[in-house]
Design a protein around this nucleic acid. Structure first.
Lengths: 128, 128
DNA sequence: CGGAATCCGCCGCGATACTG
DNA sequence: CAGTATCGCGGCGGATTCCG
């Protein structure tokens, strides 16, 4: 994956687009993307329903994030020209694939949440 | 993990600290953390060496991110009181554990990198 | 060498108002 | 209902300077 190495044989993480890791992180790093992806694992859902389930997200950010996810091929957007309009979002095949490793990560974090909080308290105690 | 559901049986993602996912994302979410963690999988390394390997990171961000990782118990910091000072960072046991699911995620992203870029081009072509 | 401290630009993101 | 458009500020993070 990362072939570039320095004189000590250690990997170098390039700035550019070629670094796959950076491309992932930009999505994962965005808190809303992950929550939206996970919400859609419960099945297809409508705009305002997602909005109410992902607490705290603004209309602006939901629209924008869904667009990005659609653009990357993780989410499918379907418009039903009723009155009023109905728009349903669902995971694509690739979207469902992405959620798998993502889920393992979240699961790990959930299990280690206490250990992390404990470590923090210890650290903050030392530094005061 | 997430027990709260709405009338349709779909999960609700609370704003608060109770949502494990949100806690994960804030840690792993930022681009620098992941790159630093991965760089340390090649073995312990010094401050400026990491800085040169993670391209584009500023001194400020490297220091800050390393502190956060140390605080959460993912990274160990050891000072060698030589002249000039030498500081070596390495993954803790928990840090190594974290990298595993993280690696699967990155691996997935690497494999699907082309598909994502292709989807993007198709999307951008439509919207123009 | 490995930081800490300060300053500051810019843009992410929320709030609000308006449309098809 | 599901968006777009516009404005405004808060804070992330880069650049610079100084220190043990």
């Amino acid at each position: 994956m990362e072939l570039l190495k320095n004189s000590s044989g250690k990997r170098i993480f390039k700035k550019t687009d070629e670094c796959a890791i950076r491309n992932v992180i930009t999505h994962i790093g965005d808190k809303w993307s992950v929550l939206i992806l996970f919400s859609l694992t419960d099945g297809p859902d409508r705009f305002n329903s997602i909005k109410s389930r992902v607490e705290g997200i603004s209309q602006r950010m939901l629209t924008q994030t869904l667009r990005d996810l659609e653009r990357d091929g993780f989410v499918n957007r379907k418009v039903y020209p009723e009155v009023p309009v109905k728009v349903v979002y669902k995971l694509t095949a690739m979207g469902k694939e992405l959620v798998k490793p993502l889920y393992d990560l979240v699961l790990w974090a959930d299990e280690n949440h206490d250990a992390i909080k404990k470590s923090r308290r210890a650290y903050d105690g030392k530094v005061k």
